[in-house]
């Protein structure tokens, strides 16, 4: 059973159409890179999958639970980390963990929470209020909260913004580990190098429509078969019809 199923997803805001007829599936253990230019519909798709936005048309399901008819069961299986994580400013890191543990009915969660906090080097700040944390630390807290209930679907929107190299490495490793344990992971990012490095599949959106959905292996095989050495960046620009910067402009 696919962890994420999106069927004929449309989303319109008044006269603006954000996503048009998008369909795709993500299997457990897959790390899907969601890429596209600004306004392509990436965040809208993720927010709809997180249950924040209602689709104008189409069906979305998480681990077999329809978000429309079984929203609580679907949400219990997922975690969403937005690009700008918003925390309760006056609560401490540990209080955030307490709340998440209570929300997802977790038992014996404290050791797991301590381990997560240690992994992301937040132990010293455990009892600090979140208003005192830097952007990167807030991102780490959001990730700790997301990981605490061991979700089967994890969605990241620009996960590396504001993080130091140690945290970047920790997050990349944790993503690979979670995927190897069977979680389906979706990463939306403009950093094509991150997608190339981390993802096992890619979905390119342009103006709300799907222009490519393939595994990285399929892309490599196709490139080999065609005798081309096209990078992900070349492919992205070709598919989204953005002119590449000329040498002079780059200078």
């Amino acid at each position: 059973m696919s962890a994420i199923v999106v069927q004929d997803f449309h989303k319109a805001y008044d006269t603006t159409v954000a996503v048009v007829g998008l369909s795709f599936e993500v299997e457990p253990g897959t790390i899907l890179g969601l890429v596209g230019p600004n306004g392509a519909g990436k965040t809208t798709t993720m927010r709809a999958l997180a249950g924040i936005l209602a689709p104008t048309r189409g069906k979305l399901s998480i681990c077999g639970h329809d978000l429309e008819t079984e929203p609580v069961a679907a949400k219990a299986a997922l975690a969403y980390i937005p690009d700008d994580p918003r925390l309760f400013d006056q609560l401490t890191i540990w209080e955030h963990m307490r709340f998440v543990a209570s929300a997802y009915h977790l038992k014996d969660w404290k050791d797991h929470a301590e381990a997560l906090i240690k992994t992301f080097e937040l132990t010293e700040k455990r009892d600090s209020t979140c208003s005192d944390l830097s952007r990167g630390m807030r991102q780490k807290v959001a990730i700790c909260c997301a990981y605490l209930h061991d979700p089967r679907v994890i969605m990241f929107d620009e996960p590396l913004t504001g993080l130091d190299p140690y945290a970047i490495r920790a997050i990349k490793e944790s993503i690979r580990q979670r995927a190897s344990e069977g979680a389906a992971i979706m990463i939306s990012s403009h950093l094509l190098s991150l997608i190339e490095d981390l993802c096992t599949a890619i979905l390119i959106l342009h103006r709300g429509e799907k222009v490519l959905h393939a595994t990285m292996q399929e892309l490599r095989s196709k490139a080999e078969a065609d005798g081309k050495h096209e990078s992900l960046e070349d492919l992205f620009f070709r598919l989204t019809a953005q002119p590449q910067p000329t040498e002079g402009a780059a200078k």
Partner: peptide
């Protein structure tokens, strides 16, 4: 924060 934690949470 409420939107992030509650709207995406199992409530």
């Amino acid at each position: 924060a409420e939107i992030q934690f509650l709207f995406c949470g199992p409530f």
